[in-house]
Design a protein around this nucleic acid. Structure first.
Length: 552
DNA sequence: ATAAGTACGTA
DNA sequence: CGTACGTACTTATT
């Protein structure tokens, strides 16, 4: 029974239903009892979506593992939409165009109440999916039974499709599911941010917090004036308008097709106007997106910055976060400080993408290079080029156009690592032709057909990138849920996931143990995810009190 | 009001 | 040396 699937549903009021299993009758109970059952039996709870985890977490229950129907649906079928009615129709092979929209109930057409979740047409009744399942204990139990049935159908569909069926993919469906539990916890726990430190940082960059709108406008005008005083006589512009900025630059003799920072950077030294404008943009970004309003919106009184998390982005399958958690300017990490008595274990995967390429392609020669701490060194030696040239060639192969032309390094790359390059070529070709791809872990990456030559080329790049980025995301998530699980006894909590980086909050007395654990979890994950075992994955792991500190 | 375009932050 | 995403602002369209 340990680890067996068991359906669970949590109503908005916190009432829990657990599906029948074997001789056990299903029951309607409390979150506390569900947690006790989780500890005793450790089932794999079948949930319809992250919402269940959110309700469990807000009721104080952090369960060990789950089978998340929406997450598994996205793996098997690709795309983003994964509501119950859509997942059901996909599994039953029903026409998807007729699946009712995932909309709130219409107030004027009273939904017919039925005790049967599946309608005569074979589709899931929309009123059930919209919350009608929580109407009575009986409907709640039926909802959990259906979840269990759907999970079994998904297990079969995954086996047929190849999702989660590859040698290295064992466990990916489970980790992709359990990440939804982690996401609910990340959203509830938040990222520790020291309000005083954040305020001080902001003051240094954009000035003190304005007391009213008039003062804010004055500060903005003053910032603008610093730039405009470098403008040619009489010229002025709204610095927030790219069109006007372009005209202003033209008046100063700088003709550019657009005013992006990357394009203006080359004029920085020659033009005080450009230099001032680029500095202005930095401050403006902080002021508008990551300023006091940002703190007010997302930083709680308890010193935690909270946003919503998703386990996969619908494209290649990376995690996403709102509230700016994934694109916060690096300077603001100075304010991410562990509260008294706690520290962070900060860990990031090193050279994850080329290592992942070695694993997913099965290229023995490239796998051999991963034994080095810096794998670009052996690659450079193999190709007979400098390390920077080797790195550019590798990244170009993974993401850029390599077909046909390319430098000497690119040509030698084909000779030295034919299996890896063949894997990328295959993905590129499939994507160009509009054929769907599957990542190493079995996630379907949907491709469209047709398009102009430029779109076809872009699709090729998208496809080869998705194979690498998607596989790296799978490895990362498996690592993260392993740390989540193994770290419980140390009081370690993941507070940030940033594609290849983990920030783990832990009581100071367990810092060293937690750092070792994070390293051990990577070993364990690598063995499970890439069982051939010839690819080495590395992480830079340090104990810090502030995220901005590389090592503590 | 809503959509598209521009820009920029993270990986 | 490419890809992904989230946020905010301006400009154009409905």
């Amino acid at each position: 029974m340990h680890g067996e699937l068991l359906g669970i549903a949590v109503a908005p009021d916190g009432t829990v239903a657990v599906s029948p299993e074997g001789d056990l009758p299903g029951k309607v109970t409390t979150i506390a009892e569900a947690l006790a059952y989780d500890r005793a039996v450790r089932p794999r709870w079948v949930t319809w979506s992250q919402e269940t985890a959110q309700r469990l977490v807000s009721g104080g229950a952090r369960v060990a593992r789950c089978w998340d129907i929406a997450a598994v649906h996205r793996m098997i079928f690709g795309g983003w939409r994964a509501d119950p009615g859509y997942a059901w129709a996909s599994l039953r092979g029903l026409p998807l165009g007729k699946v009712p929209d995932d909309e709130p109930p219409d107030l004027f057409t009273s939904a017919e109440e039925s005790d049967e979740p599946i309608g005569a047409d074979g589709y899931l009744r929309p009123e059930w999916a919209r919350g009608g399942w929580a109407r009575t204990p009986g409907t709640m139990l039926a909802w959990t039974r259906l979840a269990l049935e759907v999970a079994e159908l998904q297990r079969q569909a995954a086996g047929r499709s190849g999702a989660g069926a590859g040698a290295g993919a064992a466990g990916v469906i489970h980790s992709e599911s359990t990440v939804e539990l982690l996401c609910a916890e990340l959203a509830a726990d938040g990222l520790p941010v020291d309000r005083a430190a954040a305020t001080e940082l902001l003051a240094g960059i954009v000035g003190p917090r304005p007391r009213d709108e008039r003062e804010a406008a004055a500060i903005r005008a003053e910032r603008d004036a610093v730039v405009l005083k470098h403008a040619p006589d009489g010229a002025t512009a709204d610095l927030r308008s790219p069109v006007q900025v372009r005209a202003l630059l033209a008046a100063a003799g700088i003709d550019v097709p657009d005013t992006r920072a990357s394009r203006l950077e080359e004029f920085r030294d020659a033009s005080p106007l450009v230099a001032a404008l680029l500095d202005w943009r930095k401050a403006e970004r902080i002021s508008t997106t990551y300023g006091y309003a940002w703190l007010d919106s997302y930083l709680g009184d308890d010193g935690r910055l909270r946003g919503a998390w998703t386990g996969c982005d619908g494209g290649a399958g990376r995690m996403t976060a709102s509230a700016g958690l994934h694109n916060m300017p690096a300077v603001l990490r100075r304010a991410v400080i562990a509260p008294d008595g706690h520290v962070f274990v900060r860990a990031d995967l090193g050279q994850i993408e080329p290592r992942v390429l070695a694993a997913v392609s099965g290229d023995r020669a490239l796998a051999a290079a991963t034994q080095a701490d810096d794998m670009y060194l052996p690659v450079a030696g193999q190709l007979g080029v400098s390390r920077p040239a080797a790195k550019v060639a590798m990244i170009g192969a993974m993401y850029g156009q390599t077909t046909g032309h390319g430098g000497a390094a690119a040509r030698r790359m084909r000779q030295a690592y034919p299996v890896a390059m063949g894997y990328l070529d295959e993905g590129d070709l499939s994507a160009r032709n509009g054929r769907d791809l599957r990542t190493y872990g079995g996630r379907l990456v949907r491709m469209t057909d047709g398009g102009s030559p430029a779109q076809v080329a872009a699709r090729g790049r998208y496809g080869r990138n998705a194979l690498i980025q998607g596989a790296a995301a799978e490895l990362f998530k498996m690592w993260a849920v392993t740390v989540r699980s193994r770290g419980l006894s140390l009081g370690a909590r993941i507070v940030m996931c940033l594609h290849d980086e983990l920030l783990v909050h832990v009581p100071a007395e367990h810092a060293a143990a937690a750092a070792r654990l994070v390293a051990d979890c990577l070993e364990e994950t690598a063995r499970r995810w890439a069982p051939r075992g010839d690819v080495r994955f590395i992480a830079d792991i340090g104990v810090v009190t502030c995220w901005a500190d590389a090592k503590g």
